[in-house]
Every structure is written in C-alpha cells, then in structure tokens.
C-alpha cells in the first residue's frame, strides 16, 4: 500500500498539539477565572502557588487526582464512569474542524493548521454539540440521586432549547457565506470584512446560546448550588468531578475559537496580506491573532459570570423560546431577503 507517512505524521502532531493546547488553555482558564473574579470582587485571588498563583491549576489538578474516589453504592457503575468520560471526549472532538491557522511550508511540504477541512464543518460541530448533553444526562441519572437527576433534566432541556436558536442564527450566516467549511468562511473574511459587521444580531444570538450550551452563568441552572446542592455532578468526586468541570472550560475555549472563526475573522487580521512578510511568519502571526481573539472571548465569559446573576428556570425557558428563536427567525428572514435582493440586482 502506498501510504503518505508525512501526512500521517503531520496529522498526529497536529492532533496532539491541538489537544495539548486545549487542555493547557482550559487549565489556565481556571486560573484566569479566579483572577478575574478576584479583580471584580476587589480581592487578591490565588497568589501562593508560584508567581501570581500560576501553579495553582497544577496544584488543583494534583489534588483532584489524589482525592478518594467514591462511587455511590446503588448507582450504575458503568454509566457513572461513562458520564464524565463522554463529557470530556465530546468537548475535545470539536477542535478537529477549527482552522487554527493558514498553511505553513515546512521542507517543501504544505501543512494546513487544521486537522480536517471537511465541507460540512459547521454541521459536524452541530452533531458534536448535540451529543454533549449525553455526558450530563448519563452522569446525573447514574448517580441515583434526585438532585442530580433534576439538574441533568434541566441541563438537557436547556441545551436542546438553545441549540435551536443557535442553529437558526448560523443558518443566516450560511446563507451569506454560501459555505459550510469553516476554513472557507475564514478565508472569505480575510478578503472581505468580518462577519460580525454583516450579522450583528446573528452573532448576539450565537453568543447568548453558546453561554447556554456551555452551562455558564447566567445559564448555569444545572449546577445551581443553592437549589440543587451542586447539580448533576453532586455525587462525583476525585478526577471524575474534575473531568466535568474541565470539560466546561474546554467547551468555553472551543466556542470562543468558533465565534472568533465564524464572526471575527478567525486567523486573519487587518492588513495581513499587505505587510510583505514571509508567508510562514504571516501564518504564525495569524494564529497568534486567533488566540488573542479567543482570550478576549474567554475573558468575556468570565466577566459575565461575575457580573450577572443566575436566571430563574422559567425566565431561561422564556428567553430561549419566546425571544431567541423568534429573533433568530427574523434575522434569517432579513438575511434571506437581502441575499435574494443582491443576487438579482
């Protein structure tokens, strides 16, 4: 068989790289979250482990690994372990279709900084996002605890409700770009303007829905500690709890990357083609630009968490079904009308 070993090596390196970067970013998001919280609440925050508390995530991870692992007696053991594993796997899967940069040329080979440029990239993300709910549901149910079950049912109905508005807001974007490949959407923004200028309402809906999909405040009803004793991961301990908490940060990172790519030009930055630099250098600068955008979004996620209080459950549902979906439909209709008008004139 004729196997392109360089191709396989390239993909393995890329996959490991993206995985490691997602995990490290998620790890330092926990540190960032505490620092942002402390600044907003006028405290100092973690400052003991390492310089400015930078080793704090490592200490937390180590603590979680060495904690005693407790599996409730009358719970379904297999499903109990499957829950956090699924949450983690699904969180990591989405990164495959995000373009982390343009192409690099290494020793005559052109390497694309995207694991898979499939022509259904956005639908793939939808598929994976729609699976994200299983980790929470299985974990909550397998715990055999009323609070956990209640929280997982809340989470599932919340995620399903906001998925609809998210999909509708994306349809408007797709009508404009005419492509489902995220790489192509980014390339279009590189030469035209950023999509957020043409789809401000769509971006707003997508932003709110990604808060809901990530179970972040003000939509973190599935882990409302004051009502549910902690939520769907109430019975979890040790690293299985860590996986649930960690998956949330990875989801945040991935949805920040997605929002940057779809609405804020991804790895493109202004004047990137007129700088006259070497293509490889421009690619690296582009990746850096993408990460700056991602960090801005991550900060926004945290800023909102420590500013806005949690919704009530009926408010959450009303916002999803009575406001978000009609707004997304109206946005779709307007976009469709403009696209039609421009294609005929």
């Amino acid at each position: 068989m004729n196997i392109d070993w360089f191709f396989i090596l390239e993909k393995i390196v890329l996959i490991s790289g993206v995985l490691v970067i997602s995990l490290v970013v998620a790890m330092y998001s926990t540190w960032g979250e505490r620092k942002v919280a402390s600044i907003i609440q006028d405290r100092i925050g973690p400052n003991r482990a390492g310089f400015m508390g930078l080793l704090q995530p490592l200490a937390d991870g180590g603590k979680l690994f060495f904690k005693e692992e407790i599996i409730p007696g009358n719970s379904n053991r297999f499903l109990f372990i499957l829950g956090p594993s699924l949450a983690m796997i699904v969180a990591c899967m989405t990164s495959a279709v995000i373009p982390w940069g343009d192409t690099l040329t290494i020793a005559g080979h052109t390497v694309s900084l995207q694991i898979a440029d499939i022509n259904i990239g956005i639908l793939y993300i939808f598929g994976v996002v729609s699976l994200g709910v299983y980790g929470i549901m299985l974990g909550g149910w397998a715990s055999n605890n009323k609070y956990s079950l209640l929280a997982s049912v809340r989470a599932a109905s919340q995620i399903i409700s906001y998925e609809l508005a998210m999909g509708l807001s994306l349809i408007a974007l797709l009508m404009m770009t005419g492509s489902l490949s995220i790489k192509e959407i980014v390339e279009q923004q590189r030469h035209g303007g950023w999509n957020v200028l043409y789809q401000p309402l769509g971006f707003l809906i997508f932003l709110v829905c990604s808060f809901a999909e990530c179970n972040r405040t003000p939509f973190d009803l599935s882990e409302a500690e004051s009502e549910l004793n902690g939520g769907y991961h109430l019975e979890y301990s040790s690293m299985k709890l860590g996986f649930y908490l960690f998956a949330e940060y990875i989801n945040m990172f991935i949805s920040s990357a997605l929002m940057s790519s779809l609405y804020f030009g991804g790895y493109s930055f202004p004047y990137m083609d007129s700088l006259g630099l070497a293509p490889n250098l421009v690619t690296i600068l582009g990746t850096a630009a993408l990460f700056i955008k991602i960090i801005c979004f991550l900060f926004f996620f945290m800023w909102v968490r420590w500013t806005i209080p949690r919704f009530r459950y009926d408010q959450l549902m009303r916002l999803g079904w009575n406001i978000m979906i009609p707004l997304a439909l109206a946005n779709m209709l307007i976009t469709g009308a403009i696209v039609l008008y421009r294609s005929t004139h």
Partner: peptide, 26 residues
Amino acid sequence: AQFLAVVHIIVYAGAIMVLFLFVIML
C-alpha cells in the same frame, strides 16, 4: 454521503435519542 451521515447523527443520536433517554429516565 457526508451530509446524510452528519444529519443522521444530529437528528437521531442528538435529538430523538435524547428524548428517548429523557422518557426512560423519568
């Protein structure tokens, strides 16, 4: 048939089976 594959996942695995799981759990 990539489109069919991913729609199959979204609709059946992502939506209908979640409802099945809902009913069975409740």
